[in-house]
């Protein structure tokens, strides 16, 4: 396959397939107050700056796909309402970078 073709369709889903995640059963990320996201946060920046597209606004709430989290910490710092409780996944769980 030509490199051009690969690049043309490199979506976030495909990028995330390149990453190894060892997901815990429970989330290490928590939206503290969903009504705040719904009513007070028109831009919902977490839904676009999160590099793993962990946060998606569906229906009337933010869905948290913690399984694909890179643990970078951006959501904790970038949430304009400090509305995300952020912990590290339990020891050994979460993202496992294999290369860089």
């Amino acid at each position: 396959m030509e490199g051009d073709e690969i690049m043309a369709k490199a979506t976030i889903e495909e990028k995330q397939y390149l990453v190894r995640f060892r997901a815990d059963k429970e989330s290490h990320l928590k939206i503290l107050d969903q009504t705040l996201c719904l009513e007070k946060c028109p831009d919902k920046p977490c839904t676009y700056f999160c590099p793993g597209e962990v946060y998606k606004f569906e229906g009337d709430r933010i869905q948290v796909g913690y399984e694909g989290c890179h643990e970078c910490g951006s959501c904790r710092i970038g949430c304009p309402h400090d509305n995300i409780e952020w912990k590290y996944p339990k020891g050994g769980y979460g993202v496992v970078f294999r290369l860089a």
Partner: peptide
């Protein structure tokens, strides 16, 4: 420079 290169890993960090 990166033509034809194959993606092997994607990473994010602060």
């Amino acid at each position: 420079l990166i033509k034809g290169a194959e993606e092997a890993e994607y990473l994010a960090h602060l």
